[in-house]
Amino acid sequence: MTLRVASAGQLSADQVTSVLRSATLAPSTHNTQPWLFSNGAAGIELYADADRTLPVADPDRRELLLSCGAALFNLRTAIHATGFQPAATLLPRRGDPDLLALVRPRSPATIDRRIASLAKAIPRRHTNRTPFAASPVPAEAVGSLRHAAEIEHAWMPRLDAEQLDGLKELVGESHRLQANDPAFVAEWRRWTGRGQANRDGVPFAAGGETAADDAWVLRDFGGARAPGAAPLVVVIGTFGDQPLDRLRAGQAMQRVLLTATALGIDASFISQPVEVPAIRTRLRDLLGGGLWPQIVLRLGYGTPVAWTPRRALEDVLLDPPSLSA
């Protein structure tokens, strides 16, 4: 397919190409990359790619919206680092649930050094599934990560020892439920353990664990309980649980991940307790009932791992474009 990128708002075609490439570097469940883009004079549209849903692990598209929210944050950040203000409208077209956002690169903007730092972290961020070292995540860094979530209308509550013990139990229980579900395992196997030639899914070199192995899910988990121990296990949540809340949560997640990357901190996802609906409800109760848990992260310092691939830009561009007025 021939790459056809037009200018958008104040951005030239080359600049649009650059910011779209940044958007596609966002994380996604099983590296499904469930996003599509359209661009034209009005701006850049972000769509959910309905063909890349996970009907077993993500039947209500919650994680798809988180992934697309992460791509949206990358897009906004890259546009700002180019020197323009990204005016984003979420869910701009009633009746079209796949159109998630319209971003209009408008007037020139003074580049915020903090956002420029996040933009530089975009190509360096990747999920690290290796065991983490015993070096603790500094308290100052934890404060920066918590602030990053709050800027994007999400919250990263402090978990006490009792809550962390409860979370560990929920992780193990939800993992066992998934590992004993043939449909989940079949879906998981379709997307993991792939060769490096694939442009999506998780290559074996980047993961390698098996869906039925409990050890990797709980490894290093207990270290989060004791001050000065590693890794750190955190939950990112929102007060609502509608599509708009989930899209915002994805942006918060990515801001947290890029902040971590800029600070030299690695991260991986503990997806099981938020993928099993009954366990997610119990996790919400564990957090006090006010927040809907959206993401559970493991943060620390790992060893270098292989990067997951990305689809070619021409494969995620809609042709012809269909821009909102």
Rank of each mutant, 00 (worst) to 15 (best):
M253K: 11
Q163V: 03
K120W: 02
L232F: 10
V142A: 10
G172H: 06
F73A: 01
D214F: 00
L247K: 03
A197R: 12
R280P: 10
A48V: 10
R310D: 07
G43L: 04
T29E: 12
S271I: 01
L145E: 05
F269W: 14
A13E: 07
L287W: 06
R158G: 05
N198S: 15
T192C: 09
F73Y: 15
A133Y: 00
D98V: 05
K120N: 10
A8W: 03
R52W: 01
F73L: 08
P321Y: 03
R4I: 12
R124Q: 11
I79N: 10
P277A: 06
W155P: 07
Q272C: 02
Q33H: 10
A119W: 00
V185K: 12
D49S: 05
E140H: 09
W188L: 08
G95S: 00
D49L: 10
R176L: 14
I279V: 14
E63D: 15
G228S: 11
V5W: 09
G288R: 10
I151Q: 13
E150A: 13
R124A: 15
L90G: 05
I295A: 02
S324G: 08
G237L: 02
C68I: 07
G201L: 09
R146Q: 11
A116I: 04
G143F: 07
D51G: 08
A325H: 05
R246H: 13
Q294V: 05
W292K: 02
D112Q: 09
R61Q: 13
A26Q: 04
G222K: 02
R219K: 10
L11A: 06
R61H: 13
T192F: 04
G201R: 13
H153Y: 11
P123F: 00
G300D: 15
D51A: 13
A70G: 15
L46C: 05
Q196V: 00
P227W: 01
H126P: 06
V137K: 09
A109H: 06
